[in-house]
Design a protein around this nucleic acid. Structure first.
Length: 539
RNA sequence: CCGGGGUUAGCUCAGUUGGUUAGAGCAGAGGACUCAUAAUCCUUUGGUCGUGGGUUCAAGUCCCACACCCCGGACCA
């Protein structure tokens, strides 16, 4: 047997300092869909997500609440994990926390490698520092406001003059190497327009990067044996060094001989938001080059979601909790909407009407009703079993051919994370199938002679077979509904709609895409799977 | 200020290397059907393709200028 292909995908790890909102859900769901697709397509897949728990902000918040930092992040991380587990049905293989003990080991190991490469040196940093942003600002980027305090103009956070000893990473030495890497790997960052912005930024020159702090201790300690010869201070790593390293920790680093590291590194895809593209497209590859570790294959940068065109913000009060949406619309409609509605990579604007439109029009009408009408006819007119088709006409073959092409179309689209295109094409075929069904009018054939009855059975078979193929392919997006659909078609159970590698093979994996429904298989009386949206009564 | 992207039907968007009557989905209108979740199918209304110039036999598609929007970045305080 040929060696099984592998796939390693990560989300950004979340800074758990607030309630999860629909933007977090967008990232988790899209990564989940990608992971499920790959599992169903036969890839041994590892899907990593988690929380980023270090930093001064956490330490200060904890003090303010009378907790230890660990107590605080235990609480907050649990909230995010719960959303993954109980609200969004996210099929991660590991929920990593940067406070996990193996992560300390990994972070110290990559640091050590970068020291050995001669890329880390001790110096002094001074400047205006914002605790909230965890960033330094030039004086010109700040201003003193009415309350006498100095603020960052861009982010409106308080800044303080900080002068501290810090370790630096020789990022400036990587400008040419990075540019060459981008040129050699034009698909490293996507979509192209966002990747171009990164490249232009690098072309404008890079400064060395401060990568340690001494003013607080909530972080991964820089190994003492590396610092004792030159300083007596205790350094902890700048959060981004340890945060990015989570991608290595997740698959076994620093144990590079481990089975999981050998299997899954380099990562196939880092899926992140546009706010952190620079960390993933510049710092991360530079760190890895320095440490002599292979670079990930691709970073896909998604956009942000806007509430009816307005940026979500707590002060405006238009932040939507994932659980609120799921309660209102149902999980699968939410998952479908997020991936179908927006070209992946661009910002998206959502409205209640838009979500309801997708739920009713695409799911309930075009797919749900097609399944219901065809399966009902099979239940009533074919002794409740998948019928035996007769000679296929050109129309039959044409619609089956369209459905067949969807596997390759979807693979190509998913390869570059153009989820919307895969779904658009799939729903186009469903539209054609509805037209095919109306044209063939099997309900009229049911009343005809033996030849017409045979023709009816053929039409019903072809329609059901199209639905089977579509149902297989949309398992990643709407796993629960697609499973019900396959159940209704009496497709032999296998796997778990892409949730684990148990979905790599079997009648419900993509390996079975080219199979066909087996005539004579009994089916149950169909029940509607995609209800139309019901508006709740005003409170 | 520099760079990138955008400005196409009521809404969201496609429009390939410039080439016949500018497309889709949703929404609207009319009709059909009754298997089905008042779903589906057919037909149809609707656009001076941001503005003004230019190149060309021919421009949504190329060039220039301008306006507005979005995204990056720089500089001055």
């Amino acid at each position: 047997m040929a060696e099984q292909p592998t796939y390693y995908i990560t989300t950004a790890i979340t800074y758990p300092n607030g309630e999860p909102h629909i933007g977090h859900a967008y990232e988790y769901i899209s990564a989940d869909v990608m992971a499920r697709f790959k599992r169903l397509d036969g890839y041994e897949t590892f899907f990593l997500t988690g929380t980023d728990e270090h930093g001064q902000k956490v330490q200060q918040n904890a003090e303010a609440q009378g907790l230890t930092p660990k107590e605080l992040v235990d609480q907050n991380a649990a909230v995010f994990k719960q959303v993954d587990d109980e609200v969004l049905n996210i099929s991660y293989d590991r929920f990593i926390r940067t406070t996990d003990t193996d992560h300390y080991e990994a972070s110290q190991a990559i640091w050590r490698r970068m020291v050995e490469a001669g890329d880390i040196y001790l110096d002094k940093y001074s400047g205006w520092y914002s605790v909230r942003d965890e960033a330094f600002y030039a004086e010109s980027e700040t201003e003193v406001r009415e309350d006498g305090e100095r603020y960052s103009k861009e982010t409106n956070t308080e800044v303080h003059w900080v002068e501290e000893e810090s370790y630096f990473f020789r990022l400036s030495a990587y400008q040419d190497k990075l540019l060459k890497f981008y040129a050699d790997n034009p698909d490293y960052g996507g979509p192209r327009s966002r990747f171009n912005e990164v490249i232009r930024f690098v072309e404008n020159g890079l400064n060395d990067l401060s990568i340690s702090r001494t003013t607080f201790d909530w972080g991964v300690p820089v190994p003492k044996d590396l610092t004792e010869s030159e300083t007596s201070l205790d350094h902890v790593m700048y959060v981004w060094v340890d945060a990015l390293t989570n991608y290595l920790t997740g698959v076994g680093f620093p144990n590079t001989d481990s089975e999981s590291f050998a299997k899954f590194w380099p990562a196939d895809l880092h899926l992140i938001g546009k706010d952190i593209s620079r960390f993933h497209c510049i710092f991360w590859p530079a760190f890895l080059m320095s440490a002599g570790i292979e670079l990930p294959k691709r970073v896909i940068i998604h956009g942000h979601l806007h509430n009816a065109g307005v940026k979500m913000s707590k002060s405006i009060g238009n932040v939507v909790a994932p659980s609120a949406w799921v309660d209102t619309y149902g999980l699968d409609p939410v998952r479908f909407f997020l991936l179908r509605e927006f070209p992946y990579g661009q910002d998206g604007s959502y409205t209640h009407e838009a979500v309801v439109g997708r739920k009713n029009s695409d799911l309930a009408n075009n797919l749900g009703n097609l399944a219901q009408r065809s399966l009902s006819m099979i239940a009533k007119n074919c002794q409740g079993a998948i019928p035996e088709p007769g000679q296929l006409t050109e129309a039959d073959q044409a619609i089956l051919e369209q459905a067949s092409s969807l596997l390759e179309t979807s693979r190509k689209a998913y390869e570059v994370q153009e989820f919307h295109k895969a779904l658009e094409r799939t729903w186009h075929v469903l539209g054609e199938t509805n037209a095919y069904f109306a044209e063939a009018a099997p309900w009229k054939l049911a009343k005809g002679d033996a030849a017409e009855q045979q023709r009816m059975r053929t039409v019903l078979y072809v329609t059901a077979e199209v639905i089977r193929r579509v149902a297989l392919l949309i398992q990643p997006v709407i796993p629960d509904s697609a499973t019900k659909l396959l159940d209704a078609l009496a497709v032999e159970a296998s796997g778990d709609a892409g949730a684990t590698n148990a979905s790599n093979t079997g009648p419900r994996s993509f390996a079975a895409f080219g199979d066909a429904l087996v005539p004579g298989t009994p089916i149950a009386k169909p029940q509607p799977i995609f209800p139309r949206h019901e508006e709740k009564e005003d409170a």
